[in-house]
């Protein structure tokens, strides 16, 4: 299983060069980041890439750290080339943004985490992948750049459907900004898979902001259930304004199971996915609440 002939390979070291190449080759070119999804697609000849633009040397895509925006808001900026390994183990992520390491730790295996990038994962937009859910839950913004300029999307706007995003052929995802949380915010993620490190049968991500034990706001996304990670709006509405107790979280889980639209596939039936959501939804919500008390998202 080998890729079809590739006529050109570019490995630009600056974003400007990269954008020039994208502008010139657009549709014909494929961006190669970690390659953990692209190379298999090339081998299966399900992706056509007469031209490869290898972005692994582009410095501007490797930013990682907290940053103040012009607006004065603080964000965690994650360059698109940031490897899963960093997200799984960086002290900043582990201490302040553990929902991201919750997800990154169980992506594939060590080798995949050493190579795979957040940009690649988000642009590939596999609904059963690990990173889209926490990125959605954290109300992140994604910055797309091209020769024509920049476009910024909320994560929710970015994902369109099964392996589809708003990204245009001449664009590249530059980075993801995760806003600093409101005080009293916690978040958590859990994946259930058939074997260790496999894609999700279901995944659940939740963010909850508490003040005096009352849920001020919440964000819940479910992955692996249908072609695009699904937001559990009714569950959020149910939680908002309520004093959080174990009983409320249990009821919220029921609302979540009720509202989610699940599909069947060879990994699990729709019914069983709901069973898993019911089992693990409560745990994820509880963990988010616990982290809210420790101010970890």
């Amino acid at each position: 299983m080998y890729p079809a002939p590739i006529s050109e390979y570019f490995a630009p070291s600056t974003l400007e060069e990269c954008l020039d190449l994208l502008d010139q080759y657009g549709n014909q070119a494929k961006i190669l980041a970690g390659g953990q999804s692209l190379i298999p697609l090339l081998k299966l000849r399900m992706a056509d890439a007469p031209i490869i633009i290898d972005i692994n040397r582009v410095i501007e895509l490797q930013e990682f750290g907290e940053k103040f925006l012009e607006s004065g808001n603080r964000v965690l900026r994650i360059g698109a080339l940031t490897r899963h390994k960093t997200l799984a183990s960086h002290p900043l992520v582990l201490s302040k943004y553990p929902i991201i390491s919750d997800a990154a730790k169980y992506i594939g295996d060590v080798q995949i985490r050493n190579r795979g990038t957040i940009g690649g994962s988000l642009v590939h937009a596999d609904p059963a992948a690990d990173l889209p859910v926490p990125i959605l839950v954290l109300d992140s913004t994604l910055r797309l750049v091209s020769k024509d300029g920049e476009r910024t999307f909320s994560a929710d706007e970015f994902f369109l459907g099964l392996m589809m995003t708003v990204i245009e052929p001449n664009e590249i995802l530059a980075h993801i900004d995760i806003p600093s949380p409101q005080p009293g915010t916690g978040a958590a993620y859990y994946k259930y898979s058939a074997v260790f490190g496999d894609f999700a049968i279901i995944s659940i991500g939740a963010r909850i902001t508490l003040q005096d034990g009352i849920c001020q706001s919440s964000r819940i996304y479910l992955g692996g259930v249908n072609p695009r990670p699904q937001r559990a709006v009714e569950t959020e509405e149910f939680l908002n304004g309520k004093t959080i107790t174990s009983e409320i979280l249990q009821k919220a889980t029921d609302v979540m199971v009720e509202e989610v639209i699940v599909e069947s596939d060879m990994r699990a039936s729709d019914t069983f996915r709901k069973v898993l959501l019911k089992q693990y939804g409560f745990d994820v919500l509880s963990k988010a609440v616990q982290r809210a008390k420790e101010e970890q998202i």
């Binding site: 295996d109 058939a194 074997v195 260790f196 490190g197 496999d198 894609f199 060879m266």
Partner: peptide, 16 residues
């Protein structure tokens, strides 16, 4: 056949 790669035909790893 729906299991045509090792992503679908799940041979257990050491962690399983």
């Amino acid at each position: 056949p729906l299991c045509t790669t090792l992503m679908e035909y799940h041979m257990p790893s050491a962690a399983d």
